[in-house]
């Protein structure tokens, strides 16, 4: 079954989302990856004003390729989430409630997801041309100087993703691997 959900995602919806659930996300998500994370944390450390209000928002770990003249964005698939793990618990504590990326998360991130009732989705890594079709509007929010790593506000329509870590401590990667692992080959 596929669930249509709206971002920012409300607390009741997050409670409903369990590992393996397929979702189509519509609404606003923020693209931010390595360098933008570093800058957000630096801003928090210095007590300065963040470029956008994190409360309840969704982060998409993504740095697109440039848009052709007749497009609003280039390819736009997820990057490896694990590199953001050192920053994520802090950002969840500061208000982020959903993340979209690829690959598994650290124990600390999974703990923060449970504690603050957040959710981690995976999108299909390497399907950037396909995923770009769900992005309807793009606006640079901050750090334009970072080029492909600037923070973008994206309006998405039916963006496909799968729940990978839920508030109940389940993990898509661990479950999937356990189901198909063989000791004989």
């Amino acid at each position: 079954m596929i669930n249509n959900i709206t971002s920012p995602i409300d607390a009741e919806t997050i409670e409903r989302l369990t590992v393996g659930t397929k979702v189509l996300i519509s609404g606003v998500i923020y693209a931010a990856r390595d360098a933008a994370h570093r800058k957000l944390i630096q801003t928090l450390d210095e007590g300065d004003r963040l470029p956008f209000d994190l409360a309840g928002q969704t982060l998409y770990y993504m740095g697109p390729s440039p848009a052709r003249p007749d497009h609003i964005i280039g390819s736009a698939g997820p990057t490896t989430s694990g590199r953001m793990d050192i920053y994520t618990p802090r950002l969840i504590a500061a208000g982020i409630r959903a993340m979209i990326g690829k690959g598994s998360r650290s124990a600390e991130v999974k703990e923060a997801i449970k504690k603050y009732k957040a959710v981690y989705f995976v999108a299909i890594g390497g399907a950037g041309a396909l995923l770009a079709k769900s992005i309807k509007q793009v606006e640079v929010v901050a750090y334009e100087d970072l080029g492909a790593e600037a923070i973008l506000r994206l309006n998405v329509d039916n963006f496909p993703a799968i729940v990978a870590n839920d508030i109940y401590g389940n993990d898509l990667f661990a479950q999937g691997k356990a189901r198909y692992r063989r000791n004989k080959y």
Binding site: S104, L172, F173, G176, Y180, R181, K184
Partner: peptide, 13 residues
Amino acid sequence: NALGIGPLGFGGR
């Protein structure tokens, strides 16, 4: 391919 990781790590052969 016996590890079970599968396409994008979602589980598979």
